[in-house]
C-alpha cells in the first residue's frame, strides 16, 4: 500500500500545492505542464462522467484505476480539487482526502491570516502536518 503523490487545484485550475512520496516515474514534462495536463484530464473526466451517467450524479467522478495506480478525486463545494494517486489496493482514500481538507487545509491554510487563498501554498507548517497525516494513514504505516 503506497501513496504516490498529491495535487491540490483551486477552482480556476491553478496548482496550489504538489507533493510526492513514492513516485517511481516522472511524466517527462515540467511540473507546470503536468499540472495543466492533469487538470485538463480531470475537467474532461468530470464532463464525461456527468454525460455518460445513467442517473443524476451528485458527487460525480470519484476515482479511476489502471493496472498500476488509482487516482482519487475530491472536489469541495467551493471548487477546490484534491487529487491523490495511490496504488490500486488502497482503501478509504476518500476519507483521507476529506481529512486532508478539513484537518490540514482548513486549519493551516484557510485559518492562516497572511495567506491569499489563490496563491500556491508555501506554508512550512502545512507541509509538515500534511506529511504527518499521510504517514499516519493506516495504509502507509502498514507497509513501512
Amino acid at each position: 500500500m503506497t501513496i504516490h503523490n498529491l495535487y491540490i487545484f483551486d477552482k480556476f485550475g491553478c496548482l496550489l500545492y504538489y507533493a510526492e512520496w513514492n513516485r517511481l516515474k516522472s511524466s517527462g514534462i515540467t511540473r507546470e505542464e503536468e499540472a495543466k495536463l492533469m487538470y485538463g484530464m480531470l475537467f474532461s473526466l468530470k464532463s464525461f462522467v456527468s454525460k455518460i451517467s445513467p442517473l443524476d450524479t451528485k458527487k460525480g467522478f470519484v476515482c479511476y484505476k489502471t493496472n498500476k495506480y488509482a487516482l482519487h478525486y475530491l472536489e469541495t463545494p467551493t471548487g477546490l480539487k484534491f487529487v491523490l494517486n495511490t496504488d490500486v489496493n488502497a482503501q478509504n482514500v476518500r476519507d483521507l482526502l476529506h481529512q486532508i481538507y478539513s484537518k490540514v487545509y482548513v486549519e493551516y491554510v484557510v485559518k492562516n491570516p497572511v495567506v491569499n487563498l489563490r496563491d500556491p501554498i508555501k506554508s512550512e507548517l502545512f507541509k509538515v502536518k500534511l506529511d504527518g497525516m499521510i504517514k499516519q494513514f493506516p495504509a502507509v504505516s502498514k507497509a513501512s
Binding site: 516515474k25 511524466s27 492533469m38 489502471t66 495506480y69
Partner: peptide
C-alpha cells in the same frame, strides 16, 4: 493521458472509472 500521468512505470490506461452512480 491516464497512462502518461502515472506515478509508476508501465501503467495501462483507465481500467475502472468510478462515479457515485455507476
Amino acid at each position: 493521458i491516464a497512462s502518461q500521468l502515472s506515478p509508476e512505470p508501465k501503467s495501462s490506461g483507465i481500467e475502472v472509472l468510478e462515479a457515485d452512480t455507476f
